[in-house]
Design a protein around this nucleic acid. Structure first.
Lengths: 386, 386
DNA sequence: TGCACTTTGGCAACAGCGTTGCGAAAGTGG
DNA sequence: CCACTTTCGCAACGCTGTTGCCAAAGTGCA
């Protein structure tokens, strides 16, 4: 690596920073480099040529050449063959070097901890799962996380699954868990059902024990970020229906966390004034109605209720697509996509527009852990703030 | 003005553009210049010093000096006295030159057209109102708009209110009107109650007749943009309760319009499943419930219903403040702020956070027209895209 | 009144950014 | 074998914000 890159002082960079808004040359350089890296990652195994990068970024080919030369010097990019000629010199294909960096994503759930080791491209190269009681106290949980992170098997050359940690630096650890928290400061608010975690500085505690940068976020935000990094472009909402009902919002490729990083409270949206009581103390929340229907075994009604909430969200934010996930959805995916889709189609018919599509989110049970790793990888590819 | 500035080719600049994301030096310069201009405008009569600009932008004082020198050369900024010394050379105060540019904002309502002429700072320097029938056909309406724009009295040196148009260039005309439309292409969808406007290319038609750039947007978005430009920082929602119920969303200082620029459909959010029918064809919309209560004279219930919708929005987006406006709110402001505030406070108590404040939006009846002008002024101050 | 000190802000030199002009490299097609 | 097309790097360039230095313009103390 070159000296000027890496963990150097980034200074007052990017919007939302302390100063806010001012862009200097250092910020410009890292912004464009991150943009190119992001396109390289999106290109995957197929790779992408310099001229194509220039078209997509709006930069001149020569600028792209300089940027990619730096990335190659740093070991983050490499040439990978060439395309067929179209009448002249064939384009050289560039690709990301996934092994140049790694991150660990931890999904801290109520009864399980799941850690994955991913490379720069986001591919899972190692996984470890262990049972956990989130109510067993801070020390026990922190120890379990440390054990999970330290014990993630790294895919060695032989692929035996138990090789040593790969050489390149571990960029950091991303942790996702249920319930509201302060993403900026890394402090938990109230993990639903576990009031003893209220106010616990999880990021600080973990960073100290692990010795690497730590980022924490809500599970739904992590999953949404993982989907965005996995190629889901534009703006979308990820609705997670499991033991609770929450949402992760991605607007213009960035996770929307809101002023106090508490955005995405989808489940306690009221869709039936003075309706049945909810665990939150209010009445008529989507979560109460939807989970109530699930308990009664009426999945069609659950899907209709979920669709009503989704339609409210779509109308308010005008997003591109709605993605569904979580155990309850996984148990009957078509019932939910059809039911939610029907409500959105009815809404679209009334306004005369095309209906917003509804799909089951890719990734399945590992989506949150993979997305948690993306909390660390995101800034590398210019997906830092929200 | 210098040759390099002005209407030169901006190239592939800014996010959301054709190429997307890539930042070259020209884009960097205009970004930083716009940032400084925005701070100058926010400083108002009081002005702001170079060092303060440097602190706020994160740029070095020397960079700010160069930028402000260019702005002064272009006539957009000027020195305006100096502050008290704090032990050394006193800071020179800079301020925006409001007369360096003007814009016209047009509020096209169902029964009235209202045009205002504003200076760079957004101060209204001329106004004209006329009765209008939005259903009288395209030719009649376009003619009325042209007449209103041409006839806005410009505040001359004597302030007689009937002087000629000021010398500096008219930057453009912003038009705000009710109902959904395509902000990007400037095409109307369906102005509520006037189906004959469906698909009408308003921006193109007006730009041709007026000979200046034209921007069109929903009335709620214009009002929200005006509030943001008027100093309301951060993220907020402007809820407009008049003949209908709509919202303008500002997230991080920028108007959020969504993928198809249709965001802000607040009124047809369902808060009572299978409730009373709404004009949109659905059941249980906030608009139907809220306006129904208003018709019955039950303003407290109207405020409670509006509060339920606002709480859903706040939970989903985690905004800083809720601002209320529109004729119905103006008739009983405290009833609505108290009623909505009570619902938000109850919500905050349950989650253990501070309640999001509710206020009546500043500007009153002229907010939309002033905000429409801001559609044109916005890009000058770096508030272009959404 | 004079001097030391603090703070502001411009001038000049500088490193680094993307841009432009040009030519070498590496193919295709006749 | 040659003309042609296309890709891509080198060198020079203009412009950006940055750094080092110094004049300007105040305050405070002797």
């Amino acid at each position: 690596m070159r000296g000027t890159r890496g963990s150097g002082p980034t200074g007052p960079v990017g919007p939302g920073g302390p100063g806010g808004g001012g862009v200097n040359l250092l910020a410009l350089r890292s912004h464009n480099a991150a943009l190119v890296l992001d396109l390289l990652r999106a290109a995957g195994d197929e790779g992408i040529s310099r001229l194509e990068l220039a078209e997509r970024t709006g930069l001149t080919p020569q600028a792209v050449s300089k940027i990619t030369a730096r990335l190659r010097e740093d070991g983050l990019a490499a040439e990978a063959g060439r395309r067929a000629s179209t009448g002249g010199k064939p384009r050289t294909v560039l690709r990301l070097v996934p092994e140049a960096g790694h991150a660990v994503g931890v999904h801290l759930d109520r009864d399980e901890v799941r850690a994955v080791l991913v490379d720069l491209r986001g591919t899972v190269v190692g996984e470890r799962r262990a049972a956990l009681d989130l109510g067993a106290g801070a020390e026990a949980v922190l120890g379990a996380v440390r054990e999970a992170v330290a014990g993630v098997p790294a895919a060695g050359p032989g692929g035996d699954g138990n090789a040593s940690r790969p050489g390149p630096a571990l960029l950091g650890v991303g942790v996702a868990l249920p319930g509201p928290l302060d993403h900026g400061r890394g402090v938990l608010h109230r993990v639903t059902g576990f009031p003893e975690w209220d106010g616990f500085p999880l990021r600080e505690a973990l960073a100290e024990r692990l010795g690497v940068p730590v980022v924490v976020d809500k599970d739904t935000n992590a999953a949404a970020l993982g989907l965005a990094a996995g190629g889901q472009g534009g703006s979308f909402a990820y609705l997670h229906l499991g033991t609770g009902l929450g949402a992760g919002l991605v607007i213009g490729g960035r996770v929307h966390r809101g002023a106090r990083t508490g955005a995405g409270e989808f489940g306690h949206q009221v869709i039936q004034l003075d309706g049945p009581p909810c665990t939150c103390g209010n009445r008529g929340c989507v979560e109460a109605l939807c989970l109530g229907a699930v308990e009664r075994g009426d999945l069609r009604e659950a899907a209709r209720v979920l669709g009503a909430g989704a339609a409210n969200l779509v109308g308010l934010l005008d997003i591109d697509v709605v993605l569904l996930g979580g155990r309850t959805v996984a148990a009957a995916p078509e019932t939910f996509t059809d039911g939610v889709g029907a409500v959105l189609e009815a809404w679209a018919r009334r306004t005369g527009q095309d209906a917003v599509p509804v799909r089951v989110a890719a990734g399945g049970g590992g989506a949150v852990a993979g997305g948690a790793a993306e909390l660390v990888l995101g800034p590398v590819f210019g997906r830092g703030g929200g």
